[in-house]
Amino acid sequence: MKTPSAFYKPLAIGAPAPFRELPLSLERMIHFVPPHVEKMRAKVPDLIEKVDVVLGNLEDAIPADAKTDARRGFIQMATENDFGATGLWTRVNCLNSPWFLDDLLEIVPAVGDKLDVVMLPKVEGAWDIHYLDQLLAQLEARAGISKPIMIHAILETAEGVKNVEQIAAASPRMHGMSLGPADLAASRGMKTTRVGGGHPDYMVLSDEAEGVTRTAFQQDLWHYTVGKMVDACLSYGLKPFYGPFGDFSDDAACESQFRNAFLMGCLGAWTLHPKQIEIAKRVFSPDPGEVSFAKKILDAMPDGTGAVMIDGKMQDDATWKQAKVIVDLAKLVSSKDASLAEIYNL
């Protein structure tokens, strides 16, 4: 653990100083693009207008014989497009793979200040973050990069979940974390082949009562892990995200899983299919009715103290804080989405 005085110092001579506060960015959906596919790269200019984050995926779902093409394709799509306020991320291969080092050595100098975040898979402890932190600093210094590249960790092993707090505290480069349910299920020995979402066998039964049919209630397999991740992230000022939902045929279940994550504190989710973009946009933008009511609370309690009655409900400093979370998010959404800005009237 670095001492407080050294925590925000660059780890290489000539590297940019780390952020002391995360940049304010709207990241409702992190949209995955397979950069080795030319027709998918061709869609990036249109995607930039539709999503909050474009991510070039180099890891899972990319065949081994296409890893080099994916890396080169990401560099091409990064250099050929102006991303403006839309984030540019890449998910590199995991640390123990034969491709990780070339991913960083080639991408960082080629893409430079355009690259906002490196998503690191299968993070198991602070040591993984420390290694990438040092490597990024060295590459930034050598390439003359002026803006620090942030790190986003994927929680997809049992050890990673166990060490989630140490991961969150590992570096000032830490941007946030995402839940990776498929690899995590395998790591835990869970008996499911689903990528996110619920399972019909994970349930509780209502109590037995004479003459009453017992009702089964399906539970959320990921509730504990999401809660633990959110607490770790928010304790250190990081951003928590839900990861992938793999059943593209079940939009309702996707929306339900995203909404559970949103209510628990997640700021966004991965979108793997174009139709999930609108789902994420709808879910991770606050409801207009909630925004309107939250504005009433803030207007009635300008300094956030005391207690007032609004629409028959008591409001105090705790609900003022809740209202501020909603209104602040609505303002951030409004800065990018003109249609919602008009609805929110902010």
Rank of each mutant, 00 (worst) to 15 (best):
P4V: 06
Y8P: 05
P10Q: 12
A17N: 06
F19T: 02
F19H: 13
R20T: 15
L22V: 04
L24H: 11
H31T: 07
K39V: 14
M40L: 13
V44I: 13
L47I: 12
E49Y: 03
E49W: 02
K50F: 00
V51L: 04
V51Y: 04
D52K: 13
D52V: 05
L55I: 00
L58G: 04
E59Y: 08
E59K: 11
D69M: 12
D69E: 15
I75E: 03
A78H: 08
T79V: 07
E80T: 03
G87Y: 01
L88S: 04
W89V: 01
W89E: 05
N93V: 07
N96M: 01
F100R: 00
E106S: 15
I107V: 10
A110H: 04
L115A: 10
V123Q: 05
G125K: 02
A126C: 05
I129Q: 09
D133L: 02
L135Q: 13
Q138E: 14
L139C: 00
R142D: 10
K147D: 03
K147A: 03
M150A: 10
I151H: 10
Q166S: 15
S178C: 04
P181N: 14
P181V: 13
A186Y: 13
G189F: 10
R194I: 00
V195P: 00
G197R: 02
D207F: 07
E208T: 09
E208L: 10
E208C: 02
D220T: 08
V226S: 05
K228C: 08
D231V: 14
A232G: 00
L234V: 13
F241I: 08
G243I: 08
F245W: 00
D247Y: 03
D250R: 08
S256Q: 11
S256T: 06
C266W: 07
Q276V: 06
Q276D: 14
Q276N: 10
I279G: 07
V283T: 12
V283Q: 08
P286C: 11
P288Y: 10
K295R: 06
K295I: 01
A300V: 07
A300C: 13
V308N: 05
D311Q: 02
D311V: 00
M314S: 12
Q315D: 01
W320D: 04
W320E: 06
D328E: 14
S334L: 08
E342M: 12
